[in-house]
Design a binder for these strands. Structure first.
Length: 267
DNA sequence: TTCCAGGCGTATC
DNA sequence: GATACGCATGGA
């Protein structure tokens, strides 16, 4: 990880990063694009403005301590994505996907924030998900804690316009606030057990659980399969996804998901 | 108007 | 365990 502090801003040098590939592709829902390669957003209650492309980025509205404590982890700067892509590129489909969008990384989000976000993602589109989460955090003036949401009701959450997912969020908040679902324990335990634990929450099925385990807990063997990935698996991996990538197949999934979606749109 | 959006819970077999 | 169906909301 290479960076410097310049008149209060952080200058980050990172070749394996493009903001459009990580902040605007359905991994995180709290970023707003305010210009070319220019975003404002937050992780929990820590704000950030970030801009840049081609290996050099400026991080504003932050400081070195926060950068090291929050953003280095968030952008997974400790992982060598060139090396990962070299490995993936042994597979022809993954090679194409990696070449298609080389700026993809796994965003390692806060676990509670990821849980809330992906519960709202169920049978929903990215624009609406962002709107719901934006209304939620604006309502409290910060990203609400499990306890703050747990005392709400479907009616009092009506302002979110989140539809049937309001009940899911209440169940998640209640179980996390009471300790019935222990997120720290989810972090410590292995992938299979962690998935089971998360799926005790209403509105958390296999796909949402995998998204949360991948982004919120950094469990890179979590492999979210939605309609797009189903198509990828049927088309390119009829005999199953290569076992060689099991440990980081969740990151491979990010490249494939982006590839199949944008390729279809002709981007 | 109808269809769909990074699914899930429930009923039914 | 597999499969069909309804579900709130809003944009295309």
């Amino acid at each position: 990880m290479e960076y410097k502090v310049s008149s209060g801003d952080i200058i980050l040098y990172e070749n394996d990063l493009e903001l459009d590939d990580v902040l605007d592709t359905g991994q995180a829902f709290r970023w707003n694009k305010i210009g070319d390669n220019h975003y404002v957003g937050a992780s929990l209650d820590t704000p950030l403005e970030i801009m840049g492309t081609g290996g050099e980025f400026i991080l504003k509205n932050t400081d070195e301590e926060t950068f090291l404590k929050v953003w280095a982890g968030y952008f997974d700067l400790g992982t060598d994505y060139s090396e990962l892509r070299n490995e993936y590129s042994k597979d022809p489909t993954l090679r194409s996907a990696c070449e298609f969008s080389g700026g993809i990384r796994l965003l390692r989000q806060d676990s509670w924030e990821a849980l809330v976000s992906f519960i709202f993602s169920s049978n929903n589109n990215i624009t609406r998900i962002k709107g719901i989460i934006s209304r939620l955090s604006e309502h409290y003036g910060h990203f609400p804690t499990p306890k703050e949401i747990a005392v709400e009701s479907p009616e009092s959450l009506g302002y979110l316009r989140s539809g049937f997912r309001a009940g899911y969020i209440l169940d998640a908040a209640g179980k996390v606030a009471s300790g019935e679902v222990d997120l720290e324990n989810v972090r410590k335990t292995d992938y299979e057990a962690a998935k089971k634990e998360l799926m005790r929450i209403k509105g958390v099925g296999p796909k949402v659980a995998d998204c949360v385990l991948l982004s919120g807990f950094g469990k890179t063997e979590a492999f979210p399969v939605d309609v797009w990935m189903k198509r990828v698996l049927e088309t390119y991996y009829p005999d199953g996804f290569p076992e060689a990538f099991y440990g980081t197949r969740g990151i491979a999934q990010l490249y494939l998901f982006n590839y199949i979606r944008k390729k279809g749109k002709g981007e």
